[in-house]
């Protein structure tokens, strides 16, 4: 099944993203960064494909640097 991930370079960016997205009605989950993306030990955000555009818009509006990856 196709999944969408957003990864962040710092914990601060991940926390800020969770805070901001938590105030919207967008459905997402905080999960470990998938091993396919990196050996990262921190947090990423996963969501369904239909939410991608809104999440990108929200993060961009709030100047949070992020990477969007589809697996």
């Amino acid at each position: 099944m196709r999944r969408e991930y957003f990864v962040f370079r710092s914990t601060r960016d991940a926390i800020k993203s969770d805070r901001i997205l938590g105030k919207t009605d967008i459905k997402y989950s905080v999960v470990p960064v998938p091993k396919e993306i990196s050996a990262e030990c921190g947090m990423s955000i996963t969501t369904a494909t239909e939410n991608i555009e809104r999440i990108i818009d929200t993060l961009t509006e709030n100047s949070i640097s992020h990477r969007h990856i589809t697996l």
Partner: peptide, 9 residues
């Protein structure tokens, strides 16, 4: 910043 679960967040 070490994991994804609620305690870490």
């Amino acid at each position: 910043g070490r994991s994804f679960y609620k305690r870490s967040i």
